[in-house]
C-alpha cells in the first residue's frame, strides 16, 4: 500500500470562509481529518482546530474555513494553516500545509521599529513638565 496522502483540490491557496475539498489516498478509510491553524515563533504555541470530519469509505472530505486568522509570516510570529489525517488512535498519518488569505498569498508582517524618544519616565521632578 502506498503512503497515506492528503490531496487538496486546487493549488492549496484559499480565501477565508471558503470550503477546502480533497481526497485521501494510500491509507485505510478510517480516522479523522482536521483543519487547523498553528502559531510558531517567540511566544507560546497556540493551535486552533477549526473543522473536522470522520473519514468516510470514499476518502473524500470537505471542510469549512472561518473568516480568520490569515496565513501570516513575521519576525515574532507566524500563523500557518494545515490539514492532518489522524488514525483511530490519534496518530498523524499525513499532513499538508495550505495558505488562507484574502490575497491567496502569505501576509508578510512588517517589522515595527520602536519610536524614537518614547522612553518611559518613572519619575517627574517638581517643576518639570
Amino acid at each position: 500500500m502506498s503512503e497515506p496522502l492528503i490531496q487538496v483540490e486546487g493549488d492549496g491557496t484559499f480565501l477565508p470562509g471558503e470550503r477546502v475539498r480533497g481526497e485521501l489516498s494510500g491509507g485505510s478509510a478510517a480516522g479523522e481529518i482536521r483543519l487547523f491553524w498553528i502559531t510558531k515563533g517567540r511566544g507560546t504555541q497556540e493551535v486552533g482546530v477549526e473543522d473536522q470530519e470522520a473519514v468516510g469509505a470514499a476518502g473524500y472530505f470537505e471542510l469549512s474555513l472561518p473568516p480568520a486568522p490569515y496565513t501570516t509570516s513575521g519576525t515574532l510570529v507566524s500563523i500557518e494553516w494545515g490539514l492532518e489525517w489522524l488514525d483511530a488512535s490519534g496518530e498523524v498519518l499525513s499532513a499538508c500545509e495550505i495558505i488562507v488569505s484574502p490575497t491567496r498569498q502569505v501576509i508578510q508582517l512588517e517589522r515595527v521599529e520602536p519610536e524614537v524618544g518614547t522612553k518611559r519616565r518613572f519619575f517627574r521632578f517638581a517643576g518639570s513638565s
Binding site: K40, G41, R42, G43, T44, Q45, S73, G74, T75, L76, V77, S78, E80
Partner: peptide
C-alpha cells in the same frame, strides 16, 4: 529571519 525559520522558536525549543 522569519519566525517559522528561527531555530529558537518556542515550540521548537520545547520539543
Amino acid at each position: 529571519m522569519k519566525a517559522r525559520d528561527n531555530l529558537f522558536a518556542t515550540h521548537r525549543v520545547e520539543s
